[in-house]
Simulated scan of single mutants.
Amino acid sequence: MQPNNASGPWYLDDLKTGDLFRSGEYEMDANQIVAFAQQFDPQPFHTDLEAAKASMFGKLAASGWHTAAITMRLLVETLPFYKGLIGLSTDIQWPRPTYPGDRLRVECRVLEIAPSRSRPEQGVVTVETLTLGQEGEPRQRQITKVLAFRKPE
C-alpha cells in the first residue's frame, strides 16, 4: 500500500497490484452544483432547488458528471502518473447521489498491471476508484484502464 501523501511522478514499475491511494477531501456546495449543471447537465433536479424537492432525490443533487469531474481532480492530485493520467476505458456507476455539503474523497486501488509486449516503455494499469462521501458511502465507483509509462533511462 502506498502512503496517502505519496509523491510522484509514478512510473509503471513503481506500482504493485493492491496499491491503495487516498485523496484529500473536496466539499460540494449548491452554487457549484447549479453552475456545473447549467452548463453541462441542465436538468431541474440539478439546477432548481424547488424542482429538486419534487424529484426522486428530494433535494438538489449534483450531476453524476460533476461527481466524475471532482473525482478526476482528486485523482490527479493523488496519483501523479508520469505523463499524466491517460484513460483508455472506464466503467462508471453512481450508486448514491452527491448533495450540497457532501465531502468527497477518493480511494484508488491498483487491480492489475499489464506491461505492453509491443511497446516496452509503457503498460496498462487497471484501477478501481471509489468516490466516497463523508460517512464512507460510495457516491461513484469506476473501473478504469490507464496508460502508464516506465521511467526513462
Rank of each mutant, 00 (worst) to 15 (best):
R139K: 15
G84K: 04
V127A: 01
P95E: 05
P97V: 11
V125M: 07
G58I: 08
G8Y: 15
Q140Y: 01
S118F: 08
V106D: 02
R117V: 08
L132C: 07
A61M: 05
L60M: 03
G8M: 13
V76W: 02
L104I: 08
L130S: 14
L60Q: 01
Y99A: 02
K53I: 04
V127E: 01
E112F: 01
H46A: 06
E153I: 11
V125A: 03
T17I: 15
G8R: 09
L130C: 11
P42T: 12
L104D: 02
D48M: 08
E135H: 09
F81H: 00
V125F: 06
L15D: 03
G87E: 10
Q134M: 13
E77P: 04
Q122H: 10
Q32G: 14
D13E: 15
F36K: 10
A52M: 05
I113W: 03
R105S: 14
A68H: 01
A69P: 07
P120C: 02
G8H: 13
A35T: 14
M56L: 13
G64L: 12
P152F: 15
T144E: 08
L49G: 00
Y26M: 02
K145W: 09
G136I: 12
I33Y: 02
L74S: 05
P95A: 06
V127Q: 01
A68F: 00
Y82E: 03
T78R: 04
V76C: 02
E121A: 10
K53E: 12
L88G: 06
Q43A: 13
E135I: 05
Y11R: 01
G8D: 10
D41I: 12
T131C: 15
S7V: 15
V124I: 15
T129F: 01
L147Y: 05
S55V: 12
I113L: 05
T47M: 06
Q122I: 07
A30V: 12
D48N: 13
G101F: 13
P138Y: 07
D13H: 12
P80D: 04
F57K: 01
E137T: 11
E27L: 10
F57Y: 07
L132R: 07
L12V: 02
S23L: 06
S7G: 07
